[in-house]
């Protein structure tokens, strides 16, 4: 029954008593305004501030930010990092979700907890563990040095740290979906003579595609925006190991505020696009789930 849903825009007849599950108009308006105030102060104004500060010195300077070689290098490195981390984690996410939702095995609970690890561990610690492993004083440091391999303060370190902070997203997007869908259709395909890969590509993949896309989008947003973990492993070598978020920090600390905010506005746009696509995909994924349950 849609009775609990109240329409703030409709004026009710004053003679009619309030429905049993309705708050008074004063309560409704107070709560709505409190919530709107919170949204404005914490979400809308910061978002507006990014674009306003970026454009403060005019559109010319705004666009000149994106012709600066160091900034362009940062954009390239960010794209490169995401282009490795996102596909790698997509592969991992699908494999992990398949193993967890389709089979019973010992240590499943542990595996599933481990997948959540990056969501609750501090990004600084995520960066720290790789410095302790690969850094010059790290566990593998001397061996890497002997082979003239550089991981920390170099691109590989950035990629690995990004892989770490983004690996839960695809698996987390798929596991509940695949659990709800069950494996009856896969079993049916097997009885019809389909082989392993055929089952996956022809039966499973079409069923999970929206959930998969959802995870990929979130992973991508985080991969391009990660700051803490990447900051720890990057060493901030200008033009060599700066991603876009790190470049924003450098510009900001050099008091190049307009440029910092111009670059930040690029990531904000990415965030808004991510939210838009996410809402759409969420809606499609829900439809797919409902279909599979009906």
């Amino acid at each position: 029954m849609a009775g609990a849903i109240q329409d703030l825009t409709t004026v009710r007849q004053s003679t009619r008593p309030r429905r049993a599950t309705e708050e008074g108009p004063l309560t409704r308006w107070t709560l709505t305004l409190l919530s709107a105030g919170f949204f404005t102060a914490f979400l809308l104004l910061p978002l507006g501030a990014v674009f306003a500060e970026g454009l403060r010195r005019g559109a010319g300077l705004y666009f000149r930010t994106f012709t600066d070689p160091a900034t362009l290098d940062a954009i390239k490195l960010t794209l490169f990092t995401a282009s490795i981390a996102v596909p790698a984690n997509t592969l991992f996410g699908v494999a992990a979700a398949w193993a967890i939702t389709r089979f019973e095995f010992r240590g499943k609970h542990f595996l599933s907890t481990l997948i959540d690890l990056p969501l609750w561990v501090s990004p600084v610690i995520a960066g720290l563990v790789y410095v302790l492993l690969f850094g010059s004083q790290g566990v593998l440091g001397p061996w890497l040095k002997a082979h003239h391999w550089r991981i920390i303060y170099a691109t590989p370190g950035i990629v690995i740290a990004t892989v770490f902070v983004t690996f839960p997203f695809v698996a987390r997007g798929l596991i509940p979906l695949m659990q709800a869908q069950g494996s009856a259709e896969e079993e049916a395909a097997l009885t019809l003579g389909a082989r392993g890969w055929q089952v996956f590509l022809r039966v499973t993949l079409p069923k999970i595609k929206w959930g998969l896309l959802y995870g990929i989008i979130l992973a991508n947003a985080r991969a391009m925006g990660e700051f803490g973990a990447v900051s720890v492993v990057s060493g901030h070598i200008r033009g060599l190991t700066n991603t876009v978020p790190l470049q924003i920090e450098i510009l900001y600390n050099e008091y190049a505020f307009s440029a910092a905010f111009a670059l930040a506005s690029l990531l904000s746009l990415l965030a808004l696009v991510t939210l838009g696509v996410k809402s759409y995909v969420e809606w499609r994924a829900r439809q797919q789930l409902e279909q599979s349950q009906s």
């Binding site: 009775g3 009619r16 008593p17 429905r19 049993a20």
Partner: peptide, 25 residues
């Protein structure tokens, strides 16, 4: 019961009109 309110018509409990009373009343 007073969980919905009618567009028209009236409800009486023992001769007393309750159409405009809320559920608990």
């Amino acid at each position: 019961a007073g969980l919905e309110f009618p567009d028209s018509g009236r409800v009486f409990f023992h001769g007393e009109e309750v159409t405009h009373k809320n559920a608990y009343e």
